[in-house]
Structures are given as C-alpha cells and as structure tokens.
Design a protein around this nucleic acid. Structure first.
Length: 565
RNA sequence: UCGGGGAUGGUGUAAUUGGCAACACAACUGGUUCUGAUCCAGUCAUUGGGGGUUCAAGUCCUCCUCCCCGAACCA
C-alpha cells in the first residue's frame, strides 16, 4: 500500500491551474510571489498552517518569493509579542528560517496615505464626519440600497484639507472617516462607500504615536500586495465579496501589468472535534479551561509542537489535502494518520509501563540480572539496538492483566501464559490482593527455554506484553491527552461549542516506570512506547512525557463495538 | 428577499476537459508478525434532483433543490 505521506506530490487544483495559465500568458512576466498576511493579534493554529504551506509551496515550486507580512493596521488589538510568536511558529512549521525578514503593512502607511490623497484628488474619496451608527444605517441592507451621505459631494479641496487635519490629529476617535466614493446602491455591500481610514489615537507597536489615523483592511491589503509586487494574493472564502473592492482600488490607482496583484480565494481548513475560532480559543485560555496557548490539547502550532507532532507531518498533510472552493470539515483522523505515519518511520521504540502492576517471577534465580537486547526501530535498521535489564521482579501494565478475562482478551490472566517482549514466556499462577481486594501483585513462573522468544516445543502464546525491571526502572510521569471536544462538530446541538467540551481530556499519570535507556534521551525527543503510542519528552522537564498519539488499537475497537451493541 | 460562491462514498480530494469514477483517511473481512502496531490482500459511490443533447455525460444545455459567505470606523 502506498504510504499517505509519499502520495502527496503535485496534485492539481484550481490554484495551480491558475498559476500555470498565468505563466503561459506571461501575465506577471514569469514571476510568482505570494505572502502570508496574519494580523499579529493571536497565535497561529492548524488553519493557518494550510495557508502558510500553500503560499510557500507555490512560490517554492516556481522559484518565486514568499513573504511573511504582518497585517498590523489595527493598533488596539495587536502587539509585538504576537509577531515573534507568529514568526517562531511559522519557521517551526516550515522547518527553516525565512529568507527575508518579515514585512509590515505599517511600513506602507505613508504610501497608503499618499494614495488616499490621490483618490481624493480624483474625486474618488471623501471625508464623512457622521457617526458610525448613522453611516451604518445609511448603508442600507441586502434588500434596500443605501442612501448617500450628506458629505458625499464635499469638494476636493475641502476633503483634502480635512483629511490632512485628520492626520494632524485635529479630530477625536470616531469623529470622522475617509470613505471611498463608489455607489451606495451597489449590490455588493462592500462597495457602498467603504471606510478607508478611521481616527484612532492609539500607540502602534511599531509606528508609535506617529499616526492617529489607520487604514482599514480593505484599503491596506491590496495596495500592500502591490507595493510588495505580490502576484497571487490568496485568501479564504469569506473575502470573496471583498475582491470587487480589492480590484476597484487597484483600478483607481492605475496599478497595472505585472505590478498588479490578483486575489484568489480558497476554503479554509476545519477539523472534526476542533474549533479554530480565535475568540473561542482565547476563551479557553482565559477561562483556564486549558493551560495556555501551548496546551497540547489546543489546535495551535505551539501546542502541536509541545505534543510532539512533527512539522513535516503537518506539511505533508497540507500538501495532501490540496485546495478547493468547497467549505468542508476534515476528519481529525486524517491529520493523525499523517502524524502516525511519520512517527512510525522515525520514532525509536522503548518500553514504559504507565500504570504499573508488580510481577514476581517465583522461579527466577535470586539476584540474577539478564541483559536483553531490544530493536530501536523495526522500520529503520540504522537505529540499532539497546540493552534492557531483565530480573525476577518486574512491572507490567495494569491493562495487560484481567482476573476474569473477557472473550477475545488474550493478554495475561490467571493460569495464562504470555510473552514478555524481548524476554521470556511467563505464566500467571497466583494473585496477591490488598485488604480492599485490589490486585496488587502477580506471582508468575518463567520458562528459561523461551529466551529466543519462542518455545522449543512449539507452543504458542496469544499475546506479547511490555515490562520494566523494577530495580532498574526510572520513575517519571506521563500526560495523556484526549480530544478537547467530545462532539464531532462542537456546538452543533446547542449552538455553543463550550457545551461539548470534554472535561476528561487530560490525565496525568505520576507513577510511570521507564526502562533505563529512556534516561539518555535528549529533551524534546519523540519516541514510541511499545504497544502504547507515541510520546514526546518535555522540552524542559526530564522524564516527563506528553502523549502525542496512541497507536491504532484493535482491542480498544473490540471493546467499543461491544459497548455499542 | 439582494449580491457572491458552492454541491462527487462515512470524510476530504481526483478524473487526460465528452470516453472504464481514481487516491488517501475511516470502517469491515482475512493473512503475516516477539508491538492487538507496522506490513500485505480484499470489501465499501451508478457523482444533490428532474428533463434534454450524444454512440457515450461527474463533465455540455435546462429547470429545481439544498448549503456557505456578505449590511465593524475587525481582519
């Protein structure tokens, strides 16, 4: 079977088709230039990953230019902290440093201002000193056309004079705006004399107090693209109705030929069991429903990193899903399959017991330590082997023993024989319980003849389980994560995603036992604990792991099916 | 009700532009296995609906239905 991460090359889609056409017609003199334009007012999440990958791969495929541009036109919500976080996350995702330093819309404020005067001079923009509510009412509705502002026919000289006063700080916040003069009866609401500048006496994190008027998104975006010489300005579907305005501004400024960028929209990325709304994610953090923006249960890139998702897996995923103009929701399992696929190839294996149950091998020679050899990665011979001490006193996983085994359960049970991975066959003869009747310890015997993993008499065992030698075990902790939302489409029933929050999405296991070689792993490693899943060693805390993802688990499926029927 | 955009399996995307509906994920069968993992083999859609053009329609025409986005001095 073809692996999903290898099948991802060059699938065509409407954007690659468009670029091919533009190259063919020489629309941009063979240039391809893209950009990723986040507003620095939040952290990047998987949704952004798609936009980043699309834009960067398009330019890479055509030896073009790709820039990160902060769309910092609104000083009240933006800050410098976000710019560094965005850059870090983006570079982590791309797996490399950006060739060029990030750009800023705020660097174009002067040019934007000059162009605005240009539009005023052309009679295409005017100052309106009505309040926001009045302007909104005059805009009309979907059914009714709007009505002209009384200031719409103000003459050019006066517009220029007041606009300059706006810049000079003569007006307070909200007192007046600069509007494009288009048409108040336009079918597209965005064209009903949209706002270009608003007064904001706010300190901008880069321009400081230099400006007290700030351009709106619509006025800044296309012009910034043009200044940078972006060719293909990609954005998500909800900007479709803004394209007409994007084009109108460029037309009025007479920006033509290969200087002129074009906007193309694609569907944004959504996942089952996930929310990507900035507002909701912020709420989760502020209400301490999660432990911060990098909580491994969050869909942010920093959370993925902390959880151990390889950046390459995310990139492969983005490449694979391609692009469409259909708004849909991806099953989170697809992303997870890319992560598993990647980790199956690359992650070394180790043994760890997360919920220990003591096993004493009654016929083991007193004090004897047997050094066993384990394969580090069956998918990669070059990963070599390691030594694992085996003794008569071990820990096994509690889930690997059942006093009264259910049908199809073929791990350890009274009287049953299983194989200990890289060890011996053992048979459970006795159970030791505490006063409350909990199983505390298993008394087993081993078969010395099974050292090679097989019994000379040919008898078979149905299961192989993992273990750690008690006296050699390293003590540590593991955090298991489950989906943050229990519903496939959070909020579908009640309208509020928070109603579907999974309150048991995080489990801390503080009494985990690790085989000795785990102590030598560098911080930040991602490995597989055999039979359990992939785990990411914390970047700072030794012997503290985050569960990246569990392995596919047939037994869990059997149990689930049984519960459902 | 106006403007814009969509509709292919359980999910997400393909289909040489009119020529055997393909790929991945999920699910299910079976096989291999010192990980119930991996791996291998197989099963799983007559393309939103009706009509039409054609030897041939997911693709062209036509009527209809449903879904998404749009009335911040947010982006």
């Amino acid at each position: 079977m073809e692996s999903n991460s290898e099948s991802s090359s060059a699938r065509s889609n409407f954007i690659t088709d468009l670029i091919a056409e533009d190259l063919e017609s020489n629309r941009f003199d063979q240039r391809v230039q893209t950009r990723f334009p986040p507003e620095p007012n939040g952290f990047l999440h998987v949704g952004h990953a798609k936009a980043i990958c699309i834009n960067s791969s398009i330019s890479r495929d055509h030896s073009g230019v790709f820039n990160l541009r902060y769309d910092d036109t609104n000083p009240v919500t933006e800050s410098i902290e976000f710019t560094t976080a965005i850059l870090d996350d983006l570079q982590w995702l791309l797996g490399e440093e950006l060739e060029t330093a990030p750009l800023h819309t705020s660097d174009y404020f002067e040019q934007l201002y000059l162009w605005a005067e240009d539009l005023i001079n052309k009679g295409k923009a005017y100052v309106d000193d009505q309040d926001a509510e009045t302007i909104s009412i005059q805009r009309g509705s979907f059914q009714e056309s709007g009505i002209d502002s009384p200031n719409r026919e103000r003459d050019i000289e006066e517009n220029l004079r007041i606009f300059r006063e706006m810049r000079a700080g003569k007006f307070s916040d909200g007192e007046c705006v600069l509007r494009a003069k288009i048409a108040m009866d336009h079918g597209n609401m965005n064209m009903r004399d949209p706002i270009m500048y608003r007064v904001r006496h706010e300190e901008h994190f880069r321009t400081g107090k230099e400006w007290c008027i700030y351009p709106t998104y619509d006025w800044a975006h296309g012009q910034s693209d043009a200044i940078e010489r972006v060719t293909h300005s990609l954005c998500s579907l909800e900007f479709e109705s803004h394209r007409e305005l994007y084009d109108w501004f460029l037309d009025q400024l007479e920006i033509r030929g290969d200087q002129r960028p074009y906007q193309t929209e694609f569907a944004r990325l959504n996942f089952t069991y996930t929310i990507l709304s900035k507002r909701l994610l912020k709420h989760l953090v502020e209400e301490k429903i999660v432990d911060g923006w990098d909580d491994p249960r969050m869909p942010t890139l920093r959370a993925f990193k902390k959880r151990g998702y390889p950046a390459t897996a995310i990139r492969d995923f983005c490449e694979h899903i391609g692009m469409a103009k259909t708004n849909g929701t991806h099953e989170i399992e697809l992303l997870e399959s890319f992560v598993r696929n990647n980790l199956n190839q690359n992650a070394e294996r180790r043994m760890a017991v997360l919920k220990p149950l003591k096993v004493t091998i009654t016929n083991w020679p007193e004090g004897h330590v047997d050094i066993r050899k384990g394969v580090n990665n069956p998918e990669d011979d070059s990963a070599g082997t390691r030594e694992i001490p085996f003794t008569g006193s071990l820990f096994i996983e509690r889930d690997d023993f059942m006093e009264n085994p259910e049908p199809k359960y073929y791990r350890l049970a009274p009287g049953r024989e299983v194989r200990l991975r890289y060890g011996y066959f053992i048979t459970c003869n006795d159970i030791v319980k505490d006063e409350e009747g909990n199983v505390n310890e298993l008394l087993c015997t081993y078969d010395p003849e099974t050292s090679g993993g097989k019994a000379p008499d040919g008898r078979k065992v149905k299961a192989t389980i993992h273990w750690v030698s008690k006296e050699h075990a390293l003590d540590g902790s593991v955090v298991e994560y489950d989906r943050l939302f229990s519903a496939e489409h959070p909020g579908k029933d009640t309208g509020d995603p928070l109603d579907d929050i999974n309150l048991n999405s995080k489990t801390l296991l503080e009494n985990s036992k690790f085989e000795p070689s785990i102590g030598e792993l560098p911080l930040g490693s991602t490995i597989q604990f055999e039979r359990l899943g992939y785990f990411h060693l914390d970047e700072e805390i030794p012997l503290h792991f985050h569960r990246t993802l569990g392995l596919r688990d047939e037994w869990a499926n059997i149990v689930k099916r049984r519960e459902n029927s």
